[in-house]
């Protein structure tokens, strides 16, 4: 649910990073946060919990600046990936305008990726949203592991598992090094802002 505040001429878009546990969603946000200038980023909100799992969510507000008098703000959220936090995950999805699905390339996580994408689809349906109609970008994370002894999935395998239906744009990334993080963010931001403004604003900006 995008919030468009015509009185302050503000557009808020909510982008949610989704994916199985430990696939690197929070790392994506941390990389964005550490690389951006202070005046464009807000305070990164993470809820400290024991261990490196996200229990609630992380939030990073970004400010796109003024375009045609409209102040465009983007809020990046992550969901807790672990299966057991289903309720929180669903809650964070509420009102999402765009989605980044972060896939884990480890061989052993193959099923987890597929389950998580299916979980995303059903959760959205409960809010009356269809995944195929929402802006979606898929990120194949942890590409830095390719070439190491750890067995990883190929891009083709990942495509076949996750992108045969949705045909979304995909990016290879390594959230820890920063590779692909901004490419992903750029693409989903464009799609999302366009989606939100197409829905609500075109007649306002003629």
């Amino acid at each position: 649910m995008a919030l468009i505040d015509l009185s302050k001429k503000e557009i808020h878009c909510k982008i949610v990073y989704y994916g199985p546990g430990r696939c690197g969603k929070t790392t994506n946000l941390l990389t964005v946060h550490s690389s951006m200038a202070d005046n464009a980023r807000g305070k990164m909100l993470t809820i400290e919990t024991k261990g490196d799992r996200t229990l609630f969510f992380d939030l990073l507000p970004l400010n796109l600046g003024k375009i045609r008098g409209f102040n465009i703000r983007i809020q990046l959220y992550t969901v807790p990936g672990q299966v057991m936090y289903a309720a929180t995950r669903k809650l964070v999805l509420k009102g999402a305008d765009g989605l980044v699905f972060v896939a884990d390339p480890l061989q052993v996580r193959r099923e987890r990726n597929i389950e998580s994408l299916e979980d995303l689809r059903t959760n959205l349906l409960e809010y009356g949203l269809k995944l195929e109609e929402l802006p979606l970008v898929i990120q194949y994370n942890k590409r830095d592991l390719v070439g190491t002894p750890i067995p990883t999935l190929t891009v083709e395998e990942l495509d076949a598992d996750l992108n045969s239906v949705y045909k979304a744009k995909t990016f290879e990334a390594s959230a820890v090094t920063g590779m692909g993080v901004f490419e992903t963010l750029r693409e989903i931001s464009k799609q999302t802002v366009r989606y939100v403004t197409n829905k609500h604003l075109l007649h306002e900006t003629k």
Binding site: N39, A40, N63, G65, I72, V181, R194, L202, T205
Partner: peptide
């Protein structure tokens, strides 16, 4: 309008970007 938005996004989200000029229009 969309072209402008895309430009703003490109500038702002260039990897390891410094302070984007558009971004400075309104301080966060």
């Amino acid at each position: 309008f969309h072209a402008e938005i895309d430009d703003a996004i490109d500038t702002l989200f260039a990897p390891h970007a410094g302070a984007g000029p558009e971004a400075s229009a309104t301080p966060a």
